[in-house]
Amino acid sequence: MAFSSFADFLAMGGHAPYVWSAWGVTLFFLLASVGHARLERRQLIRGLKRRQRRDQAYRASPQNSTGGQNAPAGGGHHDA
C-alpha cells in the first residue's frame, strides 16, 4: 500500500484533481460503451420481436389466410 490512510489516498499527494479527473473520464467512456451496446441490443431485439408479432397477426387474419403471396412490406419474404 502506497498510502497511510484513505484520506491520503484521496488526496493523491496534492495531485488529486489530475489523477481523479483522468480516471473519471476513462471510466465514463468504458461504462458508456458497455451501456450503449447493451441498450442497442435490447432495442434491436424488441424491434425484431415486434415485427414478428405483426407478421404473425397479418398471416392469422381471415382475409390473408389463403397464403403468403401478399406479404407486408419488410416481412414475409424468405431470402435465406
Partner: peptide, 25 residues
Amino acid sequence: MRTRNEILRRESNKRWVKELFQEAQ
C-alpha cells in the same frame, strides 16, 4: 458485442435472424 448488434440490424430480413426470436405460438 456490437458486431452482433450490427448483424441483427443489417440481416433482420434473413430467415435465421427471424428464427432466433421466434416466440412460442
